[in-house]
Design a protein around this nucleic acid. Structure first.
Lengths: 104, 104
DNA sequence: CTGAACTGCAACTTTCGTGTTGCACCACTG
DNA sequence: CAGTGGTGCAACACGAAAGTTGCAGTTCAG
């Protein structure tokens, strides 16, 4: 469960990939279209899209001879929920430790 | 705002760093103590802790001659909220596009 | 005061990721 | 049926990150 989060964070941790995601969040686009907006080659973007697809943050849709990608907000929200759960667990744990410390 | 998220994701994207965080989430510990639990040298862990501290996911606490680190769940929850907001925006955007498409 | 434990800094190696260029293949257009 | 625009794969270069070892500096214990 939480172990599967790491590759997702690694995918989100690259600035170029984040820009791609933000752009796709506004409107679905192909790798070629993205390469005209961003200062990177099409092949580099295609590779980024493959990484994003592996962790389920993006989905390819064939439209004629081009492949458009759209950002999956649901997957992002799901990741956010998992993160929030972990954060809450840490805070709870810390609160318990404090109670024990005060009890001494 | 969201741009500052990227370094945080990069920090969370490393498996070793994630293990460190999980361990600290259970109980605060020093770099030396962590190096005995994890299969990495103390210096490597110290460097990871510095990275985690830079993005505010961890906090150092001096206890005598040792420096213990504790995981900050609040920072994690904050990141989760920002993520959820972005995900919701994408879904909303996509819903709008669909409405327009249906309207044609 | 001697020693042990913990931390911090530095140099070095090695692996991995990002980005590039080049070429081949496929699908739509005229 | 050419030709163009889009995609995919492969090889290569470069820089950053992760890990290691070694050494110096501190602070607590005996």
């Amino acid at each position: 469960m939480s172990a599967a989060l790491v590759p997702t964070f690694a995918a989100l941790g690259d600035p170029t990939r984040w820009e791609i995601l933000v752009t796709l969040g506004e409107e679905p686009a192909s790798a070629s279209a993205l390469s005209e907006r961003l200062p990177v080659s099409r092949q580099a973007i295609a590779r980024h899209l493959a990484v994003l697809h592996e962790v389920g943050l993006v989905e390819p849709v064939r439209v004629g001879r081009e492949v458009r990608y759209r950002a999956l907000g649901s997957r992002l929200s799901q990741t956010a929920d998992a993160l929030a759960a972990v954060g809450a667990a840490w805070e709870r744990r810390l609160a318990t430790i404090r109670e024990i410390a005060e009890g001494l």
